[in-house]
Simulated assay, not measured.
Amino acid sequence: MILLENISKVFPSKNGDIEAVSNVHLHVKKGEIHGVIGYSGAGKSTLIRCVNLLENPSSGKVYIDGQETTKLSTNQLRNVRKKIGMIFQGFNLLKTATVYDNIAIPLRLLGFSKEEVNKRVEKYLSIVDLTDKHHTYPSELSGGQKQRVAIARALAQEPEVLLSDEATSALDPETTDSILDLLLKINEELNITILLITHEMNVIQKICDNVSVLEKGKVIEQGSAIQLFANPEHPTTQKFLNTISQRKLSASLISQLNLEGVVARLTFIGENTGQPVLAELTQQFAVKPNILTANIIELKNGIIGNLVIHLAGEEKIVDEALQFLRSKEVGIERLEGE
């Protein structure tokens, strides 16, 4: 649905060119929710603005539904943009217009009849649960309600793609969850493809099918959400994951606990999360597992369990015990004190 081929964006400055996005390849399939996560300054906003060509890439190609948009005329591009809705962190609502008019005005400018405008405003206010706010002004709404109006405005043009530029980062956790639930509903019920950017790992956790990690304008890791949560390879991805689950034990902590033997992180995916493998381990091997940290992460498409354990026992038997765990499709990472 969305294909970015070797996209780069360079901004000139007095101190030399700044490459905000560097040779990015990104494929978002129709009907999926794809998250791009990165720290501030990673190039996320520039990248998403290249999708609808609010920023023209310095090099590379953009395809929307198989059509290369980077070579279209202004009029042709205007037609393609009708397929793409966008929501922003700052809502971008007209302060002097009611909720109804904030949604209706763009439709009127596109030439829709009064009847069609009214039909669409009613439909999408219902979808975002704001049917009682027709005559309300933005100043009378909460942050979450403002974002719902912005989402209804984007949906009213009935796009095939919805771009989300840090749409939840200005909201409190409870409101963030409600907006994420709404995006899931939109994706599932309206079959709208969503590309979102965020610096919040809980957003990726809750709604994304696939993820790209961006750092200094480059994609440093990419894959399904389950793959990245189960086996993050890049240190930056690992740091993001550590914000929602303790994945690291410091060398000083291991020393304080006097942990002689093996300290290992065990990763369980899907059905394996509920298996009593540690009980089986103690029954079959002369080892004593001590659980140091544990958590279960619920993703959109699965569950991942993490245990950090200390195994005390003879080295040979501990190795056999770890091999047993691998045979049960448990991921093993030995920790030396990080």
Rank of each mutant, 00 (worst) to 15 (best):
L182S: 03
R81Q: 12
G38F: 04
E320S: 09
K30Q: 13
N306S: 11
V219K: 05
V80Y: 03
Y63R: 09
G274A: 12
L107N: 11
Q246K: 15
E189A: 09
L163K: 10
N52L: 10
L335P: 10
V36Y: 03
L162P: 03
K61T: 10
V99K: 10
A154F: 06
A321C: 08
N272P: 00
I48P: 00
A167F: 10
P173A: 09
G43K: 09
Y39L: 15
D177W: 00
K288C: 08
V277D: 11
V10I: 15
N118K: 07
I226R: 07
R81T: 01
L190S: 02
E122L: 08
L53Y: 01
L26G: 11
H199L: 11
V28I: 13
S164I: 03
F11Y: 15
L4P: 05
I332R: 05
V28T: 03
G66L: 09
T237A: 10
E188A: 15
I244R: 12
R265H: 05
L26A: 12
I297Y: 01
E116M: 12
E221I: 11
G31P: 12
N23S: 14
A150P: 08
S73G: 15
E221V: 06
S126L: 05
I226L: 14
V80T: 10
T69S: 02
E160Q: 15
R78V: 11
S245M: 12
P138M: 04
F324G: 02
T293K: 13
T131Y: 02
L26W: 06
V21L: 06
L190D: 00
N52D: 05
E333W: 00
A97C: 06
E338W: 08
L281S: 01
